[in-house]
């Protein structure tokens, strides 16, 4: 019985891996922050090679108490930041998450945001599917 359970689990894992991910996640990185800070921004290139737009409704990570989608934008010389309800990657396009633009904000971090550490996150799509990704934290002064 126990073996059957393990075999089933293994098969399920295999199936999950075989399923084509909805998005290609490239150049994922985040900013390491000094130890007193519990907040950082995560960046990546999200490519959608399918014929349908992909809508991300939420991101989750055990490393962050809260993850939000944000957009920084300049308005009359002032840099502002606002929350986005979701992220849409149009069909056949790449959504670029980068400094001074759209980013995933990690709030209430549950681990030290040190350089070289990795934040594992899961993107939840409106379709009900989800996809994992790893984000490497670069130096606080990284410019990309």
């Amino acid at each position: 019985m126990k073996y059957c359970f393990l075999v089933c689990l293994w098969l399920l894992c295999g199936l999950a891996q075989a399923a084509e991910p909805l998005l290609q996640i490239n150049e994922a990185w985040g900013r390491a922050m000094p130890p007193t800070l519990k907040v950082t921004a995560l960046y990546m290139q999200l490519s959608n090679s399918s014929a349908e737009p992909v809508v991300i409704k939420q991101a989750n990570s055990s490393s962050c108490g809260m993850l939000q989608f944000h957009q920084s934008f300049e308005e009359e010389g002032i840099m502002r930041m606002r929350m986005l309800d979701n992220l849409t990657v149009p069909a056949q396009e790449t959504l670029s998450l980068q400094p001074n633009g759209i980013h995933i904000m990690c709030l209430n971090a549950t681990m030290p945001l040190t350089e070289g550490s990795v934040i594992e996150l899961t993107l939840q799509f409106v379709s009900g599917e989800s996809q994992g990704g790893s984000v490497l934290l670069l130096a606080p002064s990284a410019i990309k």
């Binding site: 922050m33 800070l37 920084s72 840099m79 930041m81 400094p99 001074n100 606080p140 410019i143």
Partner: peptide, 17 residues
């Protein structure tokens, strides 16, 4: 400000460079 996760570290990083 230091609790600024996106824009400020970028500006500081640029000035460092």
């Amino acid at each position: 400000y230091t609790h600024c996760p996106d824009v400020c570290p970028m500006t500081l990083g640029i000035l460092r460079a």
